[in-house]
């Protein structure tokens, strides 16, 4: 989506929400991308995949899901195939 494979998000907190992580990452990258993943109400768009250590946040606590230090967050824009 951004031609960026990895970005590290540094924080002083032990745990932060995925919403905060995404906002920090967007600032750090300096290129807006959240508009492609979240709708105007700030909810996750259909088909967007956000994983914390391979678990989809829709089954954790959506954008309030908690991310711990060293967790891996994966972001995928809507994609499909067969």
């Amino acid at each position: 989506m951004l031609n960026i494979k990895e970005v590290e998000v540094d924080t002083e907190k032990e745990e932060i929400t995925i919403r905060e992580v995404l906002n920090i990452a967007e600032k750090k990258i300096g290129k807006p991308f959240l508009y492609k993943m979240l709708n105007k109400d700030g909810e996750i768009m259909r088909g967007t995949i956000i994983l914390i250590n391979g678990r989809n946040i829709l089954h954790i606590n959506k954008l309030d899901s908690v991310v711990h230090n060293k967790d891996i967050v994966s972001l995928f824009p809507p994609g499909g195939g067969g």
Binding site: G47, I49, F76, G79, G81
Partner: peptide, 18 residues
Amino acid sequence: AITGEGLPKLGTKVLDNI
């Protein structure tokens, strides 16, 4: 988003990483 952007741009091989 999938049929209008995801599939034309990335094709089915976007699935490898997903």
